[in-house]
Lab assay of single mutants.
Amino acid sequence: MAAAAAAGAGPEMVRGQVFDVGPRYTNLSYIGEGAYGMVCSAYDNVNKVRVAIKKISPFEHQTYCQRTLREIKILLRFRHENIIGINDIIRAPTIEQMKDVYIVQDLMETDLYKLLKTQHLSNDHICYFLYQILRGLKYIHSANVLHRDLKPSNLLLNTTCDLKICDFGLARVADPDHDHTGFLTEYVATRWYRAPEIMLNSKGYTKSIDIWSVGCILAEMLSNRPIFPGKHYLDQLNHILGILGSPSQEDLNCIINLKARNYLLSLPHKNKVPWNRLFPNADSKALDLLDKMLTFNPHKRIEVEQALAHPYLEQYYDPSDEPIAEAPFKFDMELDDLPKEKLKELIFEETARFQPGYRS
């Protein structure tokens, strides 16, 4: 834990890192770190609560700039109880001085990944967590956004079992017609939660990839272990087919990539493993919904509104309290091709509203 900075004593240090967030945020305490930044909790002297502050230093890398800009653009436009918001952003007053960006968010005690390492969940908890994931996802999908990296560590939890989806750095506007060349190379989302079509096709992607990830998360809540822990690309596919069985001819016809289709045709026939054999203690309604989410063919996979209306979630289902976005989200430009200098300018502009004396 960093010592509390005395008023006016300059930035606090946390594990050798400068955290320049005073005077409003003090009493910093280390939480963890990701690929390009550290997260601390801090005391907000204005709202009198502890908050989470993520320090991001992305400006050396085009990919990190892209992810940072995506996350900020999306989260500043989203407003939903099951999606983490941005409360404040701290950065230098000029673009030349801006080396880091500090993002202030609600402090959540833990995440689903940490929880599943230590606790076996009751059916009631599984049901409530799944409902909140789908409630947040309904809003995301209504904005025409794909999260693309749903996994237990991106689901934040607090002691009252509130759940918030975080990390929109890989999110995209849904565009089933656009052929994202190089899709697989830039697709760094965790393999275990990846839909089979991501490994088999490169053309376009749809909201059904997020539903697949939610199915993987439900299976993990039922058993405290990942359902498809593939060691590499082909191993991942083999794990999936080992449980779902061989795809039907109709399902194979959806695979545009001939090499991928021929690979699947070359494999020995596998039978589907019954879900109640894998999860003998699970609620039968939970397994019915799991089956509809972990469907090989993305066109037959359940959609988020149908999933919310499934009998497993009937005690929570309330369409009048499951809000959607006001308007579909649009990125003005494809960020993939922009140089990091341009992305830095866009991050600077996007964060201006939090600067003292800002006038829109």
Rank of each mutant, 00 (worst) to 15 (best):
L218A: 07
K207G: 05
T351L: 07
L163W: 05
N238D: 00
R261K: 02
I165E: 07
Q306I: 06
G8W: 02
A9F: 01
I255G: 04
A5F: 00
K151Y: 08
L346E: 09
Y131L: 12
K272H: 01
P23Y: 00
Y43W: 15
E314Q: 11
N87Q: 01
E350H: 07
A309L: 04
T94P: 13
L155G: 01
P323D: 00
P93W: 03
S202A: 12
G242K: 03
D291R: 03
L107Q: 14
Y43N: 14
S248T: 13
G10S: 10
M13H: 09
K54I: 13
S284H: 05
S246W: 06
L290Q: 14
A9T: 12
G10V: 15
D100W: 05
G182N: 04
F331K: 01
D291A: 12
G169D: 15
Y358E: 08
R91N: 13
I211V: 10
I95P: 11
C254Y: 13
P58G: 15
K342Y: 12
N27F: 07
G230E: 01
L170Y: 02
V173I: 10
C254N: 04
K292R: 07
P319S: 11
E250Q: 02
K55D: 05
N253K: 12
P196Q: 09
W212M: 05
A6V: 10
D20E: 15
L244V: 12
Q66K: 15
F348V: 12
Y233A: 08
D167N: 15
F59N: 14
L146I: 10
K207W: 04
G182P: 03
K342S: 06
V39I: 04
R15S: 15
Q236R: 00
L170G: 10
H232F: 01
A4I: 00
K138F: 02
I95T: 00
E322S: 06
E12V: 14
L278V: 10
Y193S: 11
Y193T: 08
H178D: 10
F168A: 00
I324H: 00
K292F: 07
G37Y: 10
G8H: 09
H120P: 13
D283N: 14
S122C: 13
V18G: 15
A52T: 11
T351P: 13
V51S: 02
P280H: 14
Q355A: 04
A6E: 05
F78V: 13
F59I: 15
E186Q: 08
Y316H: 01
C65H: 13
D235A: 12
A260H: 00
I140G: 07
P152M: 05
A9H: 05
A282E: 05
A4H: 08
P23Q: 05
K54T: 11
Q119H: 15
K164C: 01
D336S: 02
G242N: 03
T206P: 13
K300C: 05
D321E: 13
K344G: 08
I302N: 15
E250F: 02
H239R: 00
L75A: 02
F168C: 08
F129D: 05
L116E: 11
D288L: 06
K151W: 05
P356L: 12
Y187V: 11
E322C: 06
D318N: 14
I302E: 04
N262R: 08
D336M: 04
G215H: 09
D318C: 01
Q249T: 10
E197Y: 08
D321V: 14
K164N: 15
H239V: 00
E81C: 03
H310T: 01
L278E: 06
E349D: 15
F183G: 06
F59C: 15
D100E: 14
L294K: 04
A325R: 05
V18A: 02
P11G: 07
E60D: 15
S142V: 06
E220F: 02
G85H: 09
Y187I: 03
Y358K: 11
K203V: 10
L218K: 10
A2T: 13
D288W: 03
S248Q: 04
C166Q: 02
M98V: 01
E71N: 05
Y187F: 15
S284Q: 12
E341V: 14
K117W: 03
N154D: 00
E60F: 11
Q249D: 06
P280M: 08
C216V: 07
A9W: 00
Y139L: 07
W275T: 09
H232G: 00
K344H: 08
L115I: 05
E60Q: 15
G245W: 06
V145G: 11
Y30I: 06
A309F: 04
M13E: 08
Q132F: 06
S202Y: 11
L116D: 06
Y358I: 12
